[in-house]
């Protein structure tokens, strides 16, 4: 069997559909000289759910951090919903892209769930009533209403991951970028997360090693290897290609 060639989704597919995430020839090296991304080209349509897979060190986290300009040259190679990510658009971009980090202890830095979910809306400069309403709505979306005055260290990992998602949902982003959301979850919590991801209307770009979750939630998968897009296509095709999976050390456990 021949290995399917890496076939970047071409832009004409999106002609009539809004483009949500666009990376054009994006490269990045960390200050210590480590090159993490090489000429990434990527287009994701509004509302698409895309999985980002690949071994540790492939550059998944680095790529996600480019989406809202935490990393990157801010020279317009990345754009979100048609807006190039530059220094001038940074505030706008951060409201558009909700980034959820792998460790909820990094994401949840406030003493209470309420404070944390309110952090984004508050720093967007929204009026108080709207902040409160958004917090209530975001917590309802992830099924954590009633936990407002709980403290993160009193909650299970699954609950903290849900709240972590709520902390960006409250900013009403158009794009959600989640870094390894199912890592370390027990089966019940993982199931809850999968159901949550299925219901979210946003454009989703999610890095993960959990291929069974990919099957359930994401119609499209991108394989990243050594900072390059090694493959990009429909999930069912990729998962049917045993040689491809083997080449990138992916296993459908």
């Amino acid at each position: 069997m021949t290995i399917m060639a890496a076939e970047p989704t071409t832009e004409h597919v999106y002609e009539r559909q809004a483009i949500s995430v666009h990376l054009r020839d994006t490269s990045f090296a960390y200050p210590d000289g480590r090159e993490a991304l090489h000429g990434i080209n990527l287009t994701i349509g509004a509302g698409e759910k895309v999985a980002l897979v690949g071994p540790n060190g492939a550059g998944k986290s680095t790529l996600l951090l480019h989406l809202n300009g935490v990393l990157g040259a801010l020279d317009g190679h990345v754009s979100i919903a048609g807006t190039p990510v530059t220094r001038a658009t940074l505030r706008q971009i951060r409201a558009l892209v909700g980034l959820v980090f792998q460790d909820p202890d990094d994401q949840l830095f406030s003493p209470t769930v309420f404070d944390d979910v309110a952090f984004g809306p508050l720093h967007m400069g929204l009026p108080e009533a709207e902040v409160r309403q958004r917090v209530a709505h975001a917590l309802a979306q992830v099924g954590m209403s009633g936990y407002e005055s709980r403290m993160p260290h009193h909650m299970s990992l699954g609950q903290r991951k849900r709240v972590a998602v709520a902390t960006v949902l409250s900013m009403a982003p158009a794009v959600l970028a989640l870094d390894e959301p199912s890592a370390g979850l027990d089966p019940r919590a993982r199931r809850g997360l999968i159901e949550l991801l299925q219901t979210l209307p946003q454009t989703l770009l999610v890095s993960t090693h959990d291929l069974r979750m990919v099957v359930e939630v994401f119609p499209r998968t991108i394989i990243l290897a050594e900072g390059r897009v090694a493959h990009d296509g429909p999930t069912d095709q990729i998962l049917a290609n045993a040689a491809l999976l083997a080449e990138h050390g992916l296993e459908l456990v």
Partner: peptide
């Protein structure tokens, strides 16, 4: 290292150096 990750998480949610809180 954790404080640097937290800082990034704050940046990603619109922190620009000024801390805000509800009245």
């Amino acid at each position: 290292e954790r404080s640097e990750r937290i800082y990034v998480a704050m940046l990603a949610r619109g922190y620009t150096g000024e801390l805000r809180s509800l009245n």
